[in-house]
Amino acid sequence: MAEIQEYWRWTEYSWHHPEMDWRQGKRIAAGIDVGSVSSQALVLVDGQIFAFSNLRTGSNSPDSANNAIKTALKDTGMEIKDLQYTVGTGYGRVNVPFANRAITEIACHARGANFMAGPKVRTVLDMGGQDCKAIHCDERGKVTNFLMNDKCAAGTGRGMEVMADLLSIPIKDIGDLSFQVDEEPQPVSSTCVVFAKSEALGLMRSGWSKNMVLAAYCSAMAHRVSLLLGRIGVEDQFFITGGIAKNPGIVKRLEQELGIQAVKSQHDSQIAGALGAGLFADTLLQKGAQ
């Protein structure tokens, strides 16, 4: 089992501001995003990003939340008791032991995207581990229209992991390899990941290279996501959050299909939810929340 699972692994890390003295800060707000696959903790001091971490979610949400915040606060001298207000979000949001409030990840992603990519962002796509969200928001990052699909693995990070396992290719290489083909193949015809797996095996048997299969799978996924986005309407500017934003095999094909470029941000696309939660915590602090 172990060597099969390695293919979907990605790197965990944490970051904190090298110069900021948090003890001078008036407001210390935190956002914790406990997703189905990854967990992030992020701390804002007076509305500025002070520290964050990006880890894999363990089998239990409270432990994952504790791990994430401890990793983020490592070597900063800050402790959980110093957090004045904490908002939990994501799949495990109600199980964050030190959170003051839980807010849905839809609202948090829109708010986070607004901070990361600027107030001109109107369309946010979040492709998470087990869901896919299409969000339309206003200039303040307030949600105006959204839909989420968390019922079906097609179009989620999990669907990509299944393909990585099947073809024995590390998940981070999928995007680049999918462009190493002589010509772009037709997308796989099956929507369902289970059926796509048998289709992929059939294509390999009939002589397709792994890269061709990846290209066909990435373009099918991009097409599926573009249909989902179509339901809420894609309006410039467009921003992608979540782990899949790191897969150019999907992003470039999606941009082509939509005829619109996604805004690039200096921030890690996976922290959008935690950042949004932290920003809500900060706003609530300013409003005098206890």
């Binding site: 307030k142 839909l147 989420m148 019922k151 079906c152 929507t191 059926f195 339901r231 809420i232």
Partner: peptide, 16 residues
């Protein structure tokens, strides 16, 4: 705000 509740699977799109 329009909140779309539901899902899309292989058989179609189902949102309220």
């Amino acid at each position: 705000m329009i909140a779309n509740y539901g899902y899309k699977d292989g058989s179609g799109e189902y949102f309220i």
